[in-house]
């Protein structure tokens, strides 16, 4: 076992532990936005984890997976945000209609 593999394994283990704590935040988070922030961070950490894994296994295909995963996770956050924004706008509209 050479030095590079040791460094990569240590960093992967550390990253996994921080991902578990982020999941805890996503589970605890009192508000919906808390969970959204946690999910965003988990996705970025997942990308970095995939990159480290690719360097450890000497496989360049992992780079393509990471590239697609960046864009997909961004799309997921944007879709969720869009959905929540329209929901909030509709609720507000109903409330104002009700009072008038």
């Amino acid at each position: 076992m050479n030095m590079t593999d040791l460094i990569l394994i240590i960093s992967m283990i550390f990253l996994s532990i921080t991902i578990i704590f982020c999941l805890l935040r996503a589970a605890l988070g009192p508000r919906m936005t808390d969970r959204l922030v946690a999910v965003n961070i988990i996705s970025i950490k997942g990308v970095v984890l995939i990159l480290l894994m690719g360097a450890y296994l000497h496989d360049n295909q992992f780079m393509d997976i990471a590239l697609v995963y960046v864009l997909l996770s961004f799309l997921a956050v944007v879709c969720l945000a869009r959905n929540m924004l329209t929901k909030a706008a509709r609720k507000e509209k109903e409330e104002t209609d009700g009072t008038v």
């Binding site: 508000r31 936005t33 959204l36 864009l71 961004f74 956050v77 945000a81 924004l85 706008a89």
Partner: peptide, 17 residues
């Protein structure tokens, strides 16, 4: 992509809180 995502989250927070 990261600034756009965090901007959207902050916008939701300001609108719904």
């Amino acid at each position: 992509t990261n600034p756009v995502a965090s901007h959207l989250v902050s916008k939701i927070e300001v609108e719904t809180n």
